[in-house]
Design a protein around this nucleic acid. Structure first.
Lengths: 146, 146
DNA sequence: GTTGCTGCAAATCCTTTGCAAGGTT
DNA sequence: AACCTTGCAAAGGATTTGCAGCAAC
């Protein structure tokens, strides 16, 4: 659950530095806000928490984190977009609690197998996919959050 | 592939009539435009084809068709929304050709089986899911469309 | 004649872009 | 110094809403 590495430097920040992007004040603030958020969050929430950072910069920074695979963007059933820290390495999918917004990753080898099987069932050649699972997480089921 | 039933009345229209909605001129026009479209389409395309129908009405009508399960709404990898006629009855998923926009349904019993299996792998209780498969369809593969 | 529907324009939500000023290496 | 980033404000795309007039039942 520790979102900082031993150096006290944000993993998110490191991820984009690795891609040649600069480590700026605004980006550091956004990274910290993200790492302080319990569950998933919206871009707007970051903007509210960081009035000193322009909305455009927040979006640009989120996009950088996304392209560095340090963040993932999911959508609730109604399409409302949410972001969450992405820790897994390889390809994986996400489950989103529709009650509290908690996002979890799961590497479903089964899912990959199915996709391969679908290749025969589907017209054409599969080039990609999107898959999200909506849940009511254990915490919410046990009443921790209404 | 016939989108009209034997009565010459639009299936889309019938679907919302069954839900107690009125059969109006604007709705008839929207239904016809949809049934005349080859592959998937955007709301904006319908608006362009029907200058006499207000944009709000187009969206309201699309929403009605959606809630009657006569239409489906999918999103391309970049998130761009598209609509397509939904003919299948039961729960199913869609494949979308990223080249021509063709949308096909497939009832992947395998997928459902996997979802059931995931119940054990995922934290909490599964309440829903979203799954889209992106393809390059046979027609596009064979060069029919660049 | 009710009640539902329509078009219009304005509003909303999420996000991007142009640009001049300022920050980072 | 050279180039990247920033904040602001405006633009954008998709969709919704308020509302007065009109249409379907």
């Amino acid at each position: 659950m520790d979102s900082q590495n031993g150096n006290g430097r944000s993993d998110l920040l490191l991820a984009i530095e690795d891609q040649g992007h600069r480590s700026t004040h605004a980006r550091r603030l956004v990274a910290e806000a993200i790492e302080a958020s319990a569950e998933s969050f919206t871009a707007e929430e970051i903007c509210e928490q960081l009035p000193s950072v322009g909305r455009a910069t927040v979006y640009r920074t989120l996009k950088l984190f996304l392209s560095a695979d340090a963040l993932c963007k999911v959508a609730l059933p109604d399409g409302a977009p949410r972001y969450a820290v992405d820790t897994g390495g390889r390809h994986h999918h996400h489950s989103i609690c529709t009650n509290c917004g908690a996002v979890n990753e799961f590497r479903a080898s089964t899912v990959e197998r199915v996709l391969r099987a679908l290749d025969r069932e589907v017209d054409g050649e599969i080039t990609g996919h999107r898959m999200e699972i909506f849940v009511r997480c254990d915490k919410c089921l046990s009443g921790a959050v209404q």
